[in-house]
Amino acid sequence: MKALILSACCLLGLAACNTSDKSDNLLPIYGNREAVTKTVNGKTVTDTVYHTIPDFETVNQYGKKITRKSLDGSIYVADFFFTSCPSICPIMHRNMLKVYDEFKKSGNVKIVSYSIDPRHDSVAVLKNYADKMGITGNNWWFLQGDKQAIYKLAESYLVAVMEDNKAPGGYVHQGYFVLIDKQKRIRGSYDGTNPEQVANLIKDIKLLQTEPQSMIAQ
């Protein structure tokens, strides 16, 4: 009998643990946030407005125009790279391939890699790079856009990039993989050169996929 009570307690404890786990498991939302007060149906309500990724204009490796809207309805991972990068990009993309392989069958996760060297990384160069990486379809886009606009865009992903003649390949950039939810909010940032952090990214994407709609509604 005692044992029964004990095990019942254990079970209860576990169950409690499980439910509290769920809310703990919600990913944080990064970036600046503002409280916005507005009037809805004659009542004043205060809403939190989160930092979101702004609009951008690029073309992908297929020469197709890609904007913020093209990612509507997708969870996505973004990074900044260039095809002739001799330093960290091979490490990043060796790791990103794991993310690609994990989610290539689930339609709602995309990867976007913005080139920070658009002069060299033409559509043809990006297509060749994608082919050699073994990337097909529309799960991973390699994007070319106006250089200054891309550098500015990197800031909104909280990633630092700049040109530097002394750096290997001519550019310095951080190797973050930035996780964006369907509301275009930043939900995580992972060192793309670190396999353990990339494993965490994969876990967090799965978590984000199960996030209930009510949580998502802004």
Partner: peptide, 15 residues
């Protein structure tokens, strides 16, 4: 290692 990998595995058809 950044290019050729920790296990000398390279990178797809690039390296």
């Amino acid at each position: 290692q950044n290019c050729h990998g920790a296990q000398g595995e390279g990178l797809a058809a690039l390296i």
